[in-house]
Design a protein around this nucleic acid. Structure first.
Lengths: 252, 252
DNA sequence: CCTGAGTGAGAGCGGTGCTCTCGCATCGCG
DNA sequence: CGCGATGCGAGAGCACCGCTCTCACTCAGG
């Protein structure tokens, strides 16, 4: 991030900060966020606990750093998986994004719990975390926007047209979010916004159910189950099938 | 639960057990599961911490009891809300069940976190918890089963008929669950099972996003948003609209 | 060189889950 | 009724936690 340090002290500081973060991430992955102990991290890097406070003012600050890093890592994973496919292959991009999302979460259950599980009591995420937190939904909205521009239309909401007028201001925040970032080049009808938000929470809800044990006994291969979910969500959004079978391969 | 205690000692034991559970639930609601401290509970009931171990062998045992009680309470809430409507009004029953589900979770975020949030590190839920944990999905499956018997059909999966054959064993566990309990009197096609499981995780995923702060800024009135989600899920399952508007009123 | 900043170690505070012992109250049986 | 057995609350203690403070030491820059 920063330039090469001049002094030995600055170099040591950078190295140790890195080591602390690495050790903390390792503990986060093995034990989960609630069990993340600053003292244990200190032991792992061969320090006494009070020395860690030279590098992070509090456990919460360390947590915030981990939070941001994880959001960015997940965002990278989803973005890169989706970027590998042709822009017009919205179906392939959707499936690739969904699979990358799940693959990252399943490989790092501790990180997932930190990002999408129960908030740590007494910890309030600072503002710096909200922008990285929006990266996944931005990718999803981008795919939906491209598909919409290419003619994809979501399944109509039940109950006809009358009640739908009121839904507009319900998702006004999400709509302006999409518009301001230019994620939907050809505009986006409200129903697409609604279905995108639904798909977003469905995808993470499914991962949550998988990782937290609620799917045990109901669904066999959870990876394949996730694929089925993703395909149906795409269908509800009017996103066409992937151009070539296997184009969004299952390695994430 | 048990008969009237004979001795003063047995009565005291029952009362104190109740008091400990009540205090624990109060702390659970205010601080969340991770911050649930046995010592704090002991203080609340005017005991020293070691005395609590006369009533619960460990913090985990107390947690298990809270877990079961909460599952039952949620199950009761959803069941009762749905039972108030006419059997043939599957649309009304669906909406009522969804609303009761969310209402319970929003009113008790701590309990929700315990049931559907990050698992407590080092705690494995014993077998006694799995049956109460299935009550919500049983209610949902029952409504879908009734609707299916009345002719409701889910929206077809994208990609046509060919790939669907393989989905059968994917949700074999859920299917036998439904069949064994007689939840679908007229049988149930695989696609309905898939969409029911999706709806189930969508409903809890939406609550999770709401309570854990991921919906902030995107959706205005979260209660109304939840209604919109529930209505679309019903539509995807082929469940018809509620018989009378307002039949499944929003209190609950 | 020497002053000041950066740094690590250690002690200590109040909190946690949990174990063990001790003394008292209560209960059931002879 | 009395006595042994059991139930129970309190307290001390163990190892852990986040965090603060002090002290000694090292390093960098004027």
């Amino acid at each position: 991030m920063s330039s090469t340090p001049r002094t030995a002290r600055a170099l040591a500081r950078e190295t140790l900060t890195r080591q602390i973060l690495d050790a903390a991430r390792a503990r986060l992955r093995s034990d989960g966020p609630a069990a993340l102990s600053l003292r244990a991290v200190a032991r792992d890097v061969g320090m006494v606990s009070s020395a860690v406070y030279r590098y992070f003012p509090s456990r919460d600050a360390l947590l915030t750093r981990l939070l941001i890093d994880s959001y960015e890592e997940l965002g990278d994973a989803v973005e890169q998986a989706e970027a590998r496919l042709a822009r017009e292959d919205t179906g392939g991009r959707w499936l690739a994004a969904c699979r990358a999302l799940r693959a990252w979460c399943v490989a790092r259950p501790g990180d997932f719990a930190l990002l999408y599980g129960t908030p740590i009591p007494g910890y309030a995420a600072p503002r710096d975390t909200v922008e990285p937190a929006t990266r996944v939904i931005r990718v999803l909205a981008g795919i939906v926007g491209d598909a919409y521009a290419a003619g994809a239309r979501p399944v109509p909401a039940p109950g006809g047209t009358g009640a739908d007028a009121g839904v507009g201001d319900l998702v006004a925040g999400a709509r302006t979010f999409v518009v301001e970032r230019g994620l939907a080049p050809g505009g986006l009808e409200t129903e697409s916004v609604v279905r995108t938000l639904m798909a977003w929470s469905q995808l993470f809800g499914t991962v949550s159910f998988e990782l937290f044990g609620h799917l045990v006994g109901s669904v066999g291969d959870t990876g394949r189950w996730y694929d089925e979910v993703a395909v149906r969500l795409a269908g509800d959004l009017g996103i066409p099938a992937p151009l070539e079978a296997g184009s969004a391969d299952r390695s994430g």
